[in-house]
């Protein structure tokens, strides 16, 4: 059981099963960890901002850097009009970051390793882009797919490419995060499994277990980097896509 690299992705009911309108919406370990994520983010940031010190302490500095990083990102990519989207981008970044980081703890469930979660977040972002684009620019927003200054002969072709590239955004946005988290966790588990299997052989196997052991340690460091990076990429791509909705400059 401990050797199965897939086991960590299993979802099981903690309460329920509940059924609403023919759908099963039981409170699962995934739901529990979503709650833990929200509690962790809120807890850390509330604690960080509780002292309101003029010269920030360690925790307050973390909170301010966290805030400042997303604030700068939104300002740089979206400009002043993007202020309204700051809480959303902040929530998306924090949710993905803490989900990925909590997933690094052994026996913890990684919410973002399930495709439905990442694709839903991505579809929500793209849906918001379309909604904001249509709200701001009306039907003129569709000019996004008709770049200016392109010869009429190849314009339909270019537009087709633009449309396909737009439609592939939620897929790439969601699958990138899902794939990274899934693959990282499987690889970690596989190497950790090697350590246990080889170590169990004793003698020479014990020596042989050193290589996957070092690999697992190195991969753990890499996974921490990936966990942060994927959250950052998700947030910045959200900003870039929202920029298309706010400013149609093509």
């Amino acid at each position: 059981m401990a050797n199965d690299p897939i086991h960590q992705f299993q979802i099981h009911d903690l309460a329920g099963p509940f059924h609403v309108g023919g759908y099963e919406i039981s409170f699962t370990n995934s739901a529990l960890f979503m709650g833990v994520i929200v509690a962790t983010i809120t807890g850390i940031l509330t604690l960080a901002s509780s002292k309101r010190a003029l010269v920030p302490g360690r925790l307050q500095s973390v909170g301010e850097m966290w805030y400042g990083m997303i604030d700068n990102m939104v300002k740089n990519v979206l400009g002043e009009e993007g202020k309204a989207f700051f809480p959303l981008v902040f929530s998306l970044f924090s949710f993905v970051l803490v989900a990925n980081m909590l997933g690094m703890f052994p026996y913890f469930f990684t919410v973002t390793s399930h495709v439905i979660v990442t694709i839903s977040l991505a579809l929500f972002v793209i849906g918001l882009v379309v909604a904001v684009g249509l709200y701001k620019h009306g039907l003129g927003w569709f000019k996004l797919f008709v770049p200016s200054g392109v010869p009429l002969a190849i314009l339909p072709f270019i537009s087709l490419i633009e449309i396909i590239s737009f439609l592939s955004r939620p897929i790439s946005l969601g699958l990138r995060l899902f794939g990274n988290m899934l693959a990282g966790h499987i690889v970690l588990k596989v190497f950790a499994g090697f350590v246990v299997s080889l170590g169990a052989l004793g003698g020479l196997g014990f020596l042989g277990a050193l290589a996957p052991m070092l690999m697992a340690v190195a991969l753990t460091a890499l996974e921490f980097l990936v966990a942060f990076l994927q959250a950052f990429v998700f947030a910045i791509l959200t900003c870039v896509y929202l920029n298309d909705a706010l400013h149609t400059h093509h």
Binding site: Y23, E24, I25, S26, S30, A31, M34, I37, P87, S91
Partner: peptide, 23 residues
């Protein structure tokens, strides 16, 4: 369905907590 349902609930909660209180 279960994951989607709880994601909507918890992400909405996170958004409200962030935009109303923490940020």
């Amino acid at each position: 369905p279960s994951q989607l349902f709880w994601l909507v609930i918890f992400f909405a909660a996170l958004y409200l907590l962030m935009s109303r209180m923490v940020l």
